[in-house]
């Protein structure tokens, strides 16, 4: 698949949240206001791109040659956890302002399914290193897009009258469902028609 194809696929067609359900926890948990949603989105995009790159190198450089593919899960989660830690420390050191904005979301990313998910998907789809990086980046942008739209909806929802039992998370899920319905218009057939 071409790089443009990968980007369109992971931003729209197989959107991490809306079609693959990866990263739902922050989608519901951190979408109450737009600023933190966007912050989370950028932090996830960064970690997803980096994680795609590093997990590819470790998987194809160490695990496959040594026949240790079964250690994949444990290796990937450790890579992601240390990567998140590293990002947190370096951001804290070099850009205190950015740390202030993103800091509280960084630890949460370790248990974000989207990051682990894209690393596993890269292996399943047999992407090369650049394709993996592109998929990670595009997946992150897709996440950012979905969580930003969601937060905009929830800010509006706060002012609306919502039935008592639907308040909070339930109505967020229902709104997410309707968003996913809209995203279904981005069909795989679209990709075929666009770039063949």
């Amino acid at each position: 698949m071409t790089y443009v194809g990968i980007i369109i696929t992971y931003v729209f067609i197989s959107n991490m949240i809306l079609s693959q359900f990866l990263g739902l926890c922050p989608f519901i948990g951190v979408s109450k206001d737009t600023d933190s949603a966007v912050g989370m989105g950028f932090a996830v995009t960064f970690v997803m791109s980096m994680a795609s790159l590093v997990t590819w190198i470790i998987y194809h450089g160490i695990l496959v040659p040594l026949n240790l593919e079964y250690l994949q899960t444990i290796a990937f989660i450790l890579i992601i956890a240390s990567l998140v830690q590293l990002v947190e420390m370096s951001v804290q050191k070099f850009s205190p302002a950015m740390y202030k904005a993103l800091g509280i979301y960084l630890p949460l990313i370790t248990t974000n399914c989207a990051v682990m998910g894209i690393a596993l998907i890269n292996v399943r789809e047999e992407y090369n290193i650049l394709e993996s990086f592109t998929a990670g980046f595009a997946g992150g942008i897709g996440f950012l897009l979905a969580i930003f739209l969601m937060s905009a909806i929830r800010v509006k929802l706060d002012k609306e009258r919502v039935p008592r039992y639907l308040k909070g998370a339930p109505i967020a899920f229902v709104s997410g469902g309707l968003m996913a319905l809209a995203f279904m218009a981005f069909d795989r057939a679209l990709l075929t028609n666009l770039i063949g």
């Binding site: 809306l18 359900f21 039992y165 998370a169 339930p170 109505i171 899920f173 229902v174 469902g177 279904m184």
Partner: peptide
Amino acid sequence: RIFSLSPGALLVMGFLMAGFNWLLS
């Protein structure tokens, strides 16, 4: 068929959660 697809999942989840809230209260 929509229930097999992703929008259906989110909708079902939302309404079941609301139902659970109602039961709890």
